[in-house]
Design a protein around this nucleic acid. Sequence first.
RNA 1: GCGCUUGUAGCUCAGCGGAUAGAGCGCAGCCCUGCGAAGGCUGAGGUCGUGGGUUCAAAUCCCGCCAAGCGCGCCA
Length: 557
Amino acid sequence: MHPQKQIAEMVVSALDSAIAADTLPQIGEVTPTVERPKHAEHGDYSTSIALALASSMRMAPREIAAKIAESVERSSMVRDVSVAGPGFINFRLDDEWLRSRVNVIRQQGVKFAHSDIGAGQKVQVEFVSVNPTGPLHIGHVRGAVIGNGIANILDAAGFDVQREYYVNDAGNQMRIYMESAYVRFLQAAGKDVELGAESYPGEFVAKLGAELYAEYGDAVVEMSEDEAIGVIRKTALDRTLANIRATLSRMGIEYDEWFSEKSLIDGEDFNESLELLKDRGFISEREGALWFLGTKVGLESDSVIIRSMERGPSYFGTDIAYHYNKFVKRGFDRVINVWGADHHGHIARMNAVVNSLGVESDNLTIIINQMVNFKEGDETVSFNKRKDNFIGADELLDAVGADACHFIFLERTPGTHMEFDLELAKAETAENPVFYVQYAHARLCAVLRAAKDRGIEFEDGDVSLLTTSQELALMRRLNELPDVIARSAEMLEPHHMPHFAYEVARELQRFYEACRVISSEPADAELTKARLLLVDAARIVLEGTLNIMGMNAPERM
RNA sequence: GCGCUUGUAGCUCAGCGGAUAGAGCGCAGCCCUGCGAAGGCUGAGGUCGUGGGUUCAAAUCCCGCCAAGCGCGCCA
């Protein structure tokens, strides 16, 4: 259990025992909020529960705080419990306990910070899911980073996580894409044909057409369009998906499942979900189409599920089947969809339809990441206005590297309309937080290498020698990781990770500045060993944090 | 027109109803005979878009207004 939760439980049981002992009046169930105070003199953890209880208990907040503080059961973790200000109860961690954590971190590795709040619940994180109609572009990277970050965090928090990419291989866009590929195929065969107005003009499709011609040759050129597309279709889709997969792989992102939209229609999911909605009275037929009765559950309008017999299900229709499949067929306890802001209009009816399928709509969380503006020098451009001037995700990765993308996109909360400074991301200087954090890790590795070169063994070091303010501040920081992971998982807020990584790096640099680690003075031999233990623990925490963020922790830079 | 999101230091952003609103960059200074200076320290800089409301307590919750982005298809 992470320290913050332990403190919260200490407060609850202190409150209970004070009530039992009749020193405080009876009240209903309360859940105390425990926070980390902004100022160090307020301790490591703090609760304002006494202030919140004042009116219902009809007592002065400070008095309530004093009663609770008295009843707190002492533990090795907490050195001091005090009442301060208008009625805060402040907790200070015990130095001895903090030191002992250095050994815990070294023994357990980053797992020391993992939690069990997930309790093995099955969670699916679906992200990116861009139409397979060409390579990923620069605007898709944010969603990829956020989805991956959330999945990693949930993993560390004890959830059973599945990462999924929804492949939109049915529907209109796919038809247009295949027609585009077919035209390019014919052009590669030397035929004089033009792309239609709606077609995908990109270079990728042209290259794909040439590859298809090289593979299938003139026999397919002679076929009718429908026949020919039937032949090239699978290869075209596979190549496109392989391209997307390769880009994601460069970012260290791997999926457990690439789920086909088409399979929902070919199989039973679409019909079954429709039957279920029909039984529950959410379906009606009019104007030659089949509708989901959104107005019945408070939506502004109804939505089409099946357009007509010839034209088949709408995107919304298959999305119903998809979520039916996720919850009912595959039995996920929770589903998290990471969507771009241009899909936000779809959220309300998705929640409504999930609810109409009989699934608690709280089990579906849709995270929207806002649009990104890219800044190069003084020029700011929003990527969506650059459709004519396509910038591929690969180009961004070439320019700034995957690690910088992870850090910078994760640093901002998904809801902000953020600006991505291309110059800054590329900069290999202190202005760039990515390098600051990775440098701190590389520096720790350099110290550990130096110790090894000098033949220093520090396994038997004594952590009780770690007493300077910088050492204690660093240990405090390292011990925050369990809280940070728990909080990030509970709130689904990955941005705490890079902020924490930055704080660890900063605390490390202060420690490094003030505390000589490897000393050549014989009298300092024991202190050297103790500090090497701390350096090693810090390295473990930093590496673990970076890995959860999808980043590398370089040993040299 | 309606809906969603955003508005915090010059810039990019944190801020979990609570104590004196924070960080980085930029700016002005200071600090290396030793483990990586890609570093450390100090300082200036804010009517938290705006007007109301709820509360013992509001940047945070509610309502109005202003501004920006996005969305309002039998596209996905």
